[in-house]
């Protein structure tokens, strides 16, 4: 935690520096305590916020920082979910093993597909990743190992209370945030931001674009795979069409854009808005999807740089600073 949250800007000393150091711990303590006093409904919403925030952060890491606009991140959600289903429902092994394997399998798969998709640039990369996800959906639909398109009801999750699932989701959400902060404050993050601002100039200054992007892609795959396992721990029913559906990535894009791409705070704000909005729209059965689409269009037209973009432009405020400052 120290390396991530403690390095305040130059000149920030005394109470302000301590506040910035203590605030995340205090917020985390409140979030953990929710498991003991939060209502089931509040916890169920928080589960979704944490999971969607994690996948939103990972999409943002790719799209907002590395310039890799992927429409295939659902591949890793599906792989994470299916790993959970196979490990617990078929092999009756512990859930924790499923989470570890979800990350491992996602990274291996990302490594494999990076060979063809990293040869593509821009919109071709975007389409290439989408096609990979669609192929996975088709493959899992016809693969006897994955029970064809019938999928699985993951009954091992019946034993988990809402509070327990919330704690898992919290770990995934906070973990994703720590990973993003760690990445952005590392040499990798510096390289990413240099590439984001000017790819050609960064290359001239010695940034290896391929390796930098690949590292980012693998990290994103691992965390998205774990988040996929957490999402299906909550949902407990998986089928290929749903697991590898484009709607997961649509959610990630919505979260990143509404919150503010290229910012750490953006996906947090985006996930909160996305989940609460969707909950509100469930009160309008039959037209909720249409309303969500209209609201998304309206927000993008009004605030193209997202809510965090507006806040930053007006106040220069940021909760999670990732820029380095020379020591005083």
């Amino acid at each position: 935690m120290n390396g991530i949250f403690s390095k305040g800007p130059a000149g920030m000393a005394g109470p302000a520096w301590h506040a910035r150091r203590i605030a995340p711990i205090a917020v985390l303590a409140v979030l953990v305590s929710l498991a003991f006093w939060g209502s089931d409904y509040l916890l169920s919403i928080m589960i979704l916020i944490m999971c969607y925030m994690a996948i939103g952060q990972m999409w943002n890491l790719l799209g907002g920082y590395a310039g890799l606009v992927s429409l295939g991140q659902q591949s890793f959600i599906g792989l994470g979910g299916y790993t959970l289903a196979k490990i617990t429902q078929v092999y009756h092994l512990p859930v924790i093993l499923a989470f570890v394997l979800a990350a491992v399998i996602s990274v291996l798969f990302a490594l494999l597909i990076s060979i063809p998709v990293f040869k593509m640039k821009g919109v071709y990369f975007t389409i290439g990743t989408w096609i990979v996800a669609e192929c996975l959906a088709l493959f899992f639909s016809t693969w006897s190992f994955s029970n064809y398109a019938q999928g699985y009801t993951i009954t091992a999750t019946y034993a988990f209370s809402t509070a327990q699932i919330y704690l898992v989701a919290l770990a995934v959400g906070v973990g994703a945030l720590i990973v993003v902060m760690a990445v952005l404050r590392s040499r990798l993050g510096l390289a990413l931001m240099a590439m984001r601002d000017n790819a050609a100039a960064s290359e001239v200054r010695g940034v290896e674009q391929y390796r930098t992007k690949l590292k980012c892609f693998l990290i994103s795959a691992a965390v998205t795979g774990i988040a996929g396992a957490a999402l299906y721990l909550n949902q407990a029913f998986i089928q290929p069409a749903n697991a590898f559906g484009i709607s997961w990535t649509v959610s990630m894009v919505f979260i990143a854009i509404i919150g503010g791409m290229g910012t750490v705070e953006g996906p947090i704000i985006g996930a909160v808005i996305f989940v609460l909005l969707r909950q509100a729209l469930y009160n309008f059965p039959g037209i909720s999807m249409m309303l969500l689409g209209l609201i998304a269009i309206a927000i993008i037209m009004i605030a193209p740089r997202g809510i965090m973009g507006i806040i930053r432009r007006k106040t220069q405020f940021e909760i999670f600073p990732v820029r380095r400052h020379p020591s005083a």
Partner: peptide, 12 residues
């Protein structure tokens, strides 16, 4: 945006 967020929070 504030109104939308408030509505979402209320409904959510």
């Amino acid at each position: 945006l504030a109104v939308m967020l408030a509505l979402a929070m209320l409904a959510g």
